[in-house]
Simulated assay, not measured.
Amino acid sequence: MKKQIFLLILAFLCFSRSAKAQKFGYVDLEYITSKMPEYQTAQAEIEKLTSRWIKEISDKNLEIEKLEKAYRAEEVLLTEDMKQQRLKAISEKEKEAKDMQNKVFGINGELIKKKQDIIKPILDEISKALEKVVRQKRLDFVFDKSSDGLTMVYTNPVHDYTDYVMEELGISPEQIKDKEKEKAESESPNNTDQKSKNKKSN
């Protein structure tokens, strides 16, 4: 749906009379990064870390398999208490492996954070170079041809009509900001502690 809206807007811009005065351009970010030694070094570092974490998780899973295999082989010889202890140990190891997997590869996990730390300075460097070229060539829109759907990587703020469309729909940007502020305040730690105290006092 988003892609269809994007293509519709792009077609409108390309064929409207006002678009004649606008300058479009594109870059190939995939090609650019492939020619940057620092980007290749960063990618190699990320791959090395990923391989290390995968091995650590794999080792934990192998340990769990060994414990389970040993338990099945000795189950008939174990007392009920010994069985419960073995099963508890296996369960704890499974939880440990799962927690590590989520910590490393989950949403906002260590891998994502590491990528941001390593790649962000390089992307910032590309962004500065792009802004310089945009000013020199007086471009209004720049797309990345290496991404699906021609992702827009730069747009002149003068062509941002979001607030006008929202106004036509009866949506006030100020109201949205107020709601976001209220939500942030309601979710703040101090406010949460106060609510807890109020509940206890009641």
Rank of each mutant, 00 (worst) to 15 (best):
K35G: 13
K66E: 05
R52D: 12
P37V: 02
D59M: 02
K66M: 04
Q43S: 12
Q101W: 05
Q116S: 13
L77Y: 03
E38H: 03
L67P: 04
L62K: 13
I90N: 02
I32S: 05
Y71F: 07
W53Y: 05
K66V: 07
A97H: 00
E47Q: 09
Y71G: 04
L49Y: 13
A73P: 00
K93G: 03
E63A: 14
A97Y: 02
E68F: 04
K114H: 11
M100E: 15
K103Y: 10
Q116P: 09
T41N: 15
D59I: 01
I57A: 04
K95G: 10
K55T: 12
E56G: 06
K113C: 03
E80T: 05
M100Q: 11
Y39V: 01
S91T: 09
S51D: 08
M100K: 10
T41R: 15
A70C: 05
G106P: 07
L78N: 00
T50H: 15
E74I: 04
G109V: 02
N108P: 09
L87Y: 06
E45F: 07
E75L: 03
A97L: 00
L77I: 02
E80L: 00
D99L: 11
K35H: 14
K60A: 06
Q101N: 06
K114L: 07
P37L: 01
S58E: 13
A97P: 13
M36T: 09
M36H: 04
I90T: 00
Y31C: 14
S34G: 04
M82D: 12
K60D: 15
Q84L: 05
L49Q: 11
P37H: 04
I32W: 05
K115T: 06
T33A: 07
E75H: 07
I46N: 02
L111R: 05
M100D: 12
V76Y: 10
T33M: 14
T33Y: 15
K113F: 00
K35N: 13
A89R: 10
S58L: 12
L111N: 06
N102V: 15
M82C: 09
G109L: 03
K103V: 09
W53R: 07
L111I: 12
K93R: 03
E92P: 08
D99I: 07
L111A: 12
N108C: 05
I46L: 05
E68T: 04
A89W: 04
I54Q: 12
K115E: 10
K113E: 09
K98G: 06
I64R: 01
N61V: 12
L78Y: 00
G106V: 07
E56P: 14
D117E: 15
E68D: 00
G109I: 04
M100T: 08
V104F: 04
N61K: 15
T41D: 13
K66H: 08
E38Y: 02
R86A: 09
E92T: 14
I32H: 05
S51M: 10
I54M: 13
D59R: 00
T50M: 09
G106Q: 02
